[in-house]
C-alpha cells in the first residue's frame, strides 16, 4: 500500500502528496518508510524561502512569485507555516486566502501547516514536506514562514534562496537584522514600498548590507528589492533577483556546496533525533527514567554518571 503512494507521488497525485504530508505532520511511521523510497527522486526542485514578521505581506508576495513562475510554465509547491497557539495547540492558517487565484491550477500545490511542538524540530518536518513536493515533480518549492526566531532561521536553511521581507513602520528592522537573519538572507524585500518611511528603510537596509558585504567580502551581495505586493509592483525585480541568485549559486558551485552542507547538517540532526527518540522510549520502559531522576534528586547519583551509563549501554565510548 505504501508502494502505491510512492508511485502516486512520483506521478504528482495531489491526494497522495497531501496524505503523506499529513503522515509527516503526525510523525507517523508510514512516512519514514515512504521517504526512504522517494529520496532518490528528490533534488530536482529549486527551493525558495520567504520569511518575515507578521503583517509584512509574505503570503501576498508568495502569491505574486507563484503567479510569475506559472507564467513561465513552472510548477510550484508551497509550504506555508504559521504558529500554533502554545496555550490551545490550535492554529489559524490564513495563507491560503491570498492564493485564491491558484486554487484550481493543477500546477500549484499549497499546504498550510502549523508549527505544533515537533519533537524533531520544525525544520525536520518542513524538510520532509519539501521533499515530497520535490519528488512529486514541482519545479519550485516555496517555504513561507512567519517570524525571525531560531526555529525559522533553521527552517530557512532548507532553502536554496532565502528572501527576508521587511516593511516600513514595524520598527523591528535593526532587531531582526541582528538576530541571525543577516546570515540567511540572500535577498531583502522591502514590501509596501508605497508607505511612509519606505525610502528610509531602504537606505538603512542597503547600508547594512554593504557594510556586511565589505566586512565579510562576500561574493554575493544581497540585493534590496522594493515591492508593493498587493498591486504586483516589483514582482519582476524580485523574480529577476531570485534567478540571478540561482545563477550565481549554480555557476560558482555554491549550490552544491550549500546542499552538501545542508545534507550534512540534516543527516546529523536526523541521527540525533532518532537516537534521542529510541533512548527516550527505552528509558520510559519500567519508569526507569523516573527512578534515575529520584536518585539524582537524592544525590545518590550524579547526572553525569547517568549519561555515561545510559549511553554506554548502547554505544561504545567515543574515542
Amino acid at each position: 500500500m505504501i508502494m502505491d503512494y510512492v508511485a502516486e507521488i512520483l506521478q504528482g497525485s495531489p491526494l497522495a502528496v497531501s496524505r503523506v504530508i499529513t503522515w509527516l505532520e503526525n510523525e507517523d511511521e508510514r512516512a519514514r518508510v515512504l521517504m526512504k523510497e522517494i529520496y532518490s527522486h528528490t533534488g530536482n526542485a529549486y527551493l525558495l524561502g520567504i520569511t518575515g514578521s507578521p503583517g509584512t505581506g509574505k503570503s501576498t508576495l508568495t502569491d505574486g512569485v507563484t503567479w510569475q513562475f506559472r507564467n513561465k510554465g513552472q510548477t510550484v509547491g508551497i509550504v506555508a507555516v504559521d504558529p500554533s497557539s502554545p496555550f490551545t495547540g490550535g492554529a489559524l492558517l490564513g495563507d491560503r486566502i491570498r492564493m485564491t487565484r491558484h486554487s484550481e491550477d493543477p500546477g500549484v500545490f499549497m499546504r498550510s501547516m502549523a508549527t505544533r511542538g515537533y519533537l524533531g524540530g520544525l525544520a525536520q518536518f518542513t524538510r520532509g514536506a519539501v521533499k515530497v513536493l520535490d519528488a512529486s515533480g514541482k519545479n519550485y518549492v516555496i517555504i513561507e514562514t512567519v517570524g525571525v526566531g531560531q526555529d525559522e532561521v533553521d527552517v530557512m536553511r532548507v532553502a536554496d534562496t532565502t528572501c527576508v521581507v521587511l516593511v516600513p513602520g514595524l520598527g523591528d528592522v535593526i532587531q531582526s537584522m541582528k538576530a541571525g537573519i543577516m546570515e540567511i538572507a540572500d535577498i531583502y524585500v522591502i514590501n509596501k514600498y508605497d508607505q511612509p518611511g519606505a525610502d528610509q528603510l531602504y537606505s538603512e537596509v542597503q547600508f547594512r548590507v554593504n557594510q556586511d558585504a565589505s566586512i565579510k567580502d562576500r561574493a554575493w551581495v544581497p540585493p534590496v528589492i522594493r515591492t508593493v505586493a498587493v498591486e504586483g509592483k516589483g514582482e519582476d525585480d524580485l523574480i529577476e533577483a531570485i534567478a540571478a541568485h540561482r545563477t550565481y549559486l549554480e555557476q560558482s558551485g555554491k549550490l552544491l556546496e550549500k546542499r552538501r552542507e545542508r545534507t550534512r547538517e540534516e543527516t546529523l540532526q536526523m541521527i540525533h533525533h532518532e537516537l534521542f527518540r529510541i533512548i527516550r522510549a527505552r528509558l520510559a520502559e519500567n519508569s526507569r527514567i523516573e527512578s534515575m531522576v529520584e536518585k539524582i534528586m537524592d544525590h545518590e547519583l550524579s547526572p553525569y554518571n547517568v549519561v555515561e551509563e545510559v549511553v554506554g549501554e548502547w554505544l561504545p565510548p567515543a574515542k
Binding site: 490550535g90 492558517l93 491560503r96 486566502i97 485564491t100 498550510s112
Partner: peptide, 8 residues
C-alpha cells in the same frame, strides 16, 4: 485546538 484553514 484545531488547525483551521479559512479560505475567505
Amino acid at each position: 485546538g484545531m488547525e483551521v484553514v479559512y479560505t475567505g
